[in-house]
Design a binder for these strands. Structure first.
Length: 233
DNA sequence: GCCAACGTTGGC
DNA sequence: GCCAACGTTGGC
């Protein structure tokens, strides 16, 4: 049975021990196949150990201007194997506690399959998770159940793990969103208003300039208790 | 740069 | 085994 996952990578340059740890969706597409080294969290490692041939994975852009998942990559026919970068003192991912005789960290190989037609911003997923009744304009093809599925994602509930399990229902929602879109990618951005709340502007069909086709939604800044207020303008 | 969430470390 | 201090993650 196919299982679904999410794995995070950083698309922006960041120098660790003189080496750039950047790995964007463009980098991934260019290289095609890569080992997923550098995971240094026990829970994330254990999840990788449970990955099987053909499992599907969302490739997630993290620590960047517009974070979010891309479709999709696949686990190659090989079990998790020791992450040898942990043994190299000069490597950014060196961990003196991992010995060759008794490796602490493991990795899998993944293959690039395809990029999303519509990139799904994390902020949009948060907005969907926060909207109890009204889904953002342009996303009418999603139902209340879909919103609940998004709300239940580890990505929303926990956030901080770099390898996560994705429920089949959540995979289905993300997949539909990447196929259908309905929002304007360059427009989905968070802005603080005067009261410190985050304002999320969702453009419809890329018509950002036509004011009356847009809605402005204000999400209460408090974590975990988001409320959506529609301020038509 | 800020900071909340959460994991790890180490003294006891 | 407790828990305070500290470090990391990652969206904002």
């Amino acid at each position: 049975m196919t299982n679904f996952w999410l794995m995070k990578a950083e698309p922006n340059s960041r120098i660790v021990k003189g080496k750039d740890v950047k790995f964007s969706v463009e980098d991934f597409e260019a290289v095609g196949i890569t080992s997923w080294e550098g995971v240094r969290n026990p829970e994330a490692r254990n999840l990788m150990k449970g990955m099987r041939v053909g499992d599907k994975v969302l490739f997630y852009h993290s620590s960047c201007k517009t974070p979010g998942p891309y479709m999709h990559m696949e686990i190659l026919p090989i079990e998790a194997y020791p992450d040898y970068t942990a043994w190299d003192p000069k490597h950014p991912y060196y961990d003196p506690k991992s010995e060759e005789a008794n490796p602490k960290w493991f990795m899998v190989d993944v293959k690039f399959i395809s990029r999303a037609s519509h990139f799904v911003p994390y902020r949009l997923l948060r907005q969907i998770a926060a909207s109890n009744v009204t889904l953002p304009t342009g996303l009418e093809y999603l139902g209340e159940k879909d919103a609940r599925v998004v709300k239940d994602m580890d990505l929303i509930r926990r956030g901080r793990l770099s390898v996560q399990r994705v429920q089949p229902e959540a995979w289905d929602v993300i997949k539909r969103m990447t196929e259908k879109g309905g929002w304007s990618e360059e427009v989905v951005k968070g802005e603080k208003d005067g009261e410190g709340r985050t304002t999320i502007v969702v453009g419809v069909g890329g018509k950002r300039k036509r004011e009356n086709e847009n809605e402005t939604k204000t999400v209460n800044g408090e974590r975990g208790r988001s409320r959506v207020k529609i301020l038509n303008r």
